[in-house]
Nucleic acid binder design. Sequence first.
RNA 1: GCGCUUAUAGCUCAGCUGGACAGAGCAUCUCCCUCCUAAGGAGAGGGUCGGACGUUCGAAUCGUCUUAAGCGCGCCA
Length: 544
Amino acid sequence: MKCSKMEIRDLLKQNIQTALKELGVDLSLDDIVVENSKDPTHGDYASNVALKYSRNFQKPPRDVANLIVSKLDMSSIDKVEIAGPGFINFYMKSDSLTNIISRIIKDGDDFGRSPKKGIKVNVEFVSANPTGDLHVGHARGAAIGDAISRILSFDGYDVTREYYINDAGNQIDHLGESLIERYKECLGLPFELPEDGYHGVDVKIIAQKIREKYGDNLLEKDNPLEFFKLIGQELELEKIREDLKTFNIVFDVFSSEKAIRANGAIEKEIEFLKDHIYEDGGAKVLRTTDFLDDKDRVIVKSNGEYTYFMPDIVYHVNKLSRGFDQLIDVLGADHHGYINRMKSALMMHGYKSDVLEIELIQMVRMMKDGEEFKLSKRTGNGYTLRELCEDAGVDAARYFFVMRAASGHLDFDLDLAVKQSSDNPVYYAQYAHARLCSVLKTASDIKIDESGSLLKEHAELELVKKLSTFEDIVKVASKERAPYKITNYIHELAEKVHAFYTECRVIDRDNLEVTSARLGLCLASKIVLRNALSLVGVSAPEKM
RNA sequence: GCGCUUAUAGCUCAGCUGGACAGAGCAUCUCCCUCCUAAGGAGAGGGUCGGACGUUCGAAUCGUCUUAAGCGCGCCA
């Protein structure tokens, strides 16, 4: 038997590579494609090398395929077929497929995890202004940002989750002003909410809290606005932190714009960039068109104020100065115009354009009874993350947000998310896990066979094959920053588990050998399902 | 006007970076619990991959053009 440390696909690639070498063609492993056959009549694995490189041989693809096949090492292969225009289909010996089971059981929670790469990645997400509750748009960014972080970390990156607080802009001024008016309202004084202030009930609640905590005389302070700004923001942030915590997300770093601006950081940055800056009508403009942008960007307005872009440059430079090799910003899709200007600014610092990667998240439409809704029935305000967690549950919410490619719009079907049935993909997957746990528990007195050598039923081998692709899926999801690949995988794996469960009865007291082997498969499947679910922040219940 | 994104089954989406008859899930229709959780399984119908041209042995995938939708283009954040 071959060494089991490697995936079968990689073994086949090597096998083909050496065969080609003997035929005088040198290819790297990356040039050789071996895929899991979608169609079982095409074997377990298939390769198109003969088609792809038939030119090198100046022979028809099928002849090339024959040549390659004649040089293959057949020790782990049951049979090989040449099909269609020249595909090589591999049928593996079943033990070479099933010996992954022992490896999964041995690695447990770490199955699929890559060794540390020593690469530091900063993932910035949510970064909502502390001026109100998180809404569903933030929630999708949160779910995706956190899932990306989990996946990268599992794939061996050193990940820091960061939240950027815009606490220096005039949003906070508006918050302070609104709070003062709401505070007056609490005291029974005449009040008038500022036009561009925050009119929501949540601000009123915070005003009440402030009154309860700090008393009725706050307006007599020297600078009540500063006070309300500061306290208000603190309370808002506290709320956001709590909501994120119930959403199962914990940030490593909260960065404050104010702190980053301190000590003349902006002025120093302007000095640093001076060769790329010109004046136009009293404003300072950054020549981003020298790099990737299609338009130069104002960084200092003619009235001397900074645009939003300016401190943001400082912030990104700050992040890089903290030693990160890679920055990832998870932003709403409406920020796409922002990508090239920020990259340009970083390039002025000598960074390559791809140190910063921006994941754009498309809008979420909340659907109920087949219709879109935006507002909460209870408060009349925007529908918040907190309400979503209450209505749909954290697991369903996180799964749904992540289940589609970030670049696409998402229709969030609340009815479906709440439904406890097979239509609901979250329950489908969790149920598969719970079923496995249930079997393992019922048979806890029976020894588990980890070799997999007795597995030969179709449903068993299908499941095994699915298990063996997990490591590959993780790498792809990591590379593409694509959590939805994980949920797709979860669904496929759950499918195979359910099929196996119905087709193959596991516990048979009269046939302990087969029972043991199937228990091994159950355990391995349970482990992989759990690991996959944890990558998207969804729990794997033992019982449902 | 310029730029970005999207277009695949009635609906919501995959399609592994060019391959073998385009796949799931909902929804519709059949069938399956004397047995480890039926919150499950097996099967059926449903598509000229927005349109046109091109590159290639081979295109949903790459290129150009075109149509439609969303978004961005301010000394806004």
